[in-house]
């Protein structure tokens, strides 16, 4: 080290905090970068699968970001994508096996979508764009941040879809029977994938309205 005076960056320096909070709002993977939409449409009909999916993505993303960040100096550039895929795939299979062992019902509901975390573009994108060129700790925060940004949107979408589509939250009835007696009916359309897309669209609209950085000049 040429400069002995150079202090170690604190663990939660403003720059690092930004890695964590940025993806939740201004660089949100779903609403701003529009990545990982397919799984967001598929698993948000009910709240429970959306939560489990978010946690699974969080684990896969944080761990693979850290692993790739540790490996970053030894990975031959020519096979770096393959290396990234092997790390992600290993993590996803592990998560899938653990879900099958401990929350079997949920893993049946998620069915193929757990396996499809492998192809979730957010994860590959963060590995390639961030973890390959940053130290493990920032990479870890970046992974957590992006997964949270993904998870928040998933959970918000699932909240409205389950509430309006089935009248339940986490499978518990929340819309009182009295309302049904007055002629209220669940909106079956909310359960279908197109409504997820529209809900995401509404979220993007609201987010753009309130977030100055995202408002384009013209």
């Amino acid at each position: 080290m040429s400069k002995e005076t150079k202090e170690r960056e604190p663990l939660f320096s403003p720059k690092n905090i930004k890695l964590l909070t940025g993806p939740i709002n201004v660089t949100n993977p779903i609403t701003v970068q529009v990545l990982g939409i397919c799984s967001a449409l598929a698993v948000t009909a009910k709240l429970m699968p959306a939560i489990v999916m978010s946690i699974s993505v969080l684990v896969v993303m944080a761990v693979s970001n850290v692993v790739i960040s540790f490996l970053r100096n030894g990975v031959p550039p020519r096979i770096r994508i393959i290396v990234q895929l092997v790390v992600i795939a290993t993590m996803v299979i592990l998560v899938d096996q653990i879900l099958k062992a401990f929350v079997y019902d949920v893993s049946k509901q998620l069915s193929v979508f757990v396996g499809l975390i492998i192809t979730n573009c957010i994860i590959m994108g963060r590995l390639e764009a961030f973890a390959m060129s940053n130290k493990p700790w920032p990479a870890f925060l970046d992974g957590i941040g992006n997964a949270l940004g993904y998870g928040v949107i998933l959970i918000v979408v699932a909240f409205f879809r389950e509430l309006l589509g089935s009248g339940t939250l986490l499978d518990m009835q929340v819309i009182p029977q009295g309302l049904y007696d007055f002629g209220y009916v669940n909106n079956g359309f909310m359960i279908l994938p197109p409504m997820a897309l529209i809900t995401v669209g509404v979220i993007i609209w609201i987010q753009r309205y309130y977030t100055r950085e995202l408002i384009e000049d013209n």
Binding site: G74, V75, P76, I79, I82, V83, V86, V87, A89, T90
Partner: peptide, 9 residues
């Protein structure tokens, strides 16, 4: 590199 990585996985 590839061989070792695959064996570990």
């Amino acid at each position: 590199y590839a061989a070792i990585m695959v064996i570990i996985a």
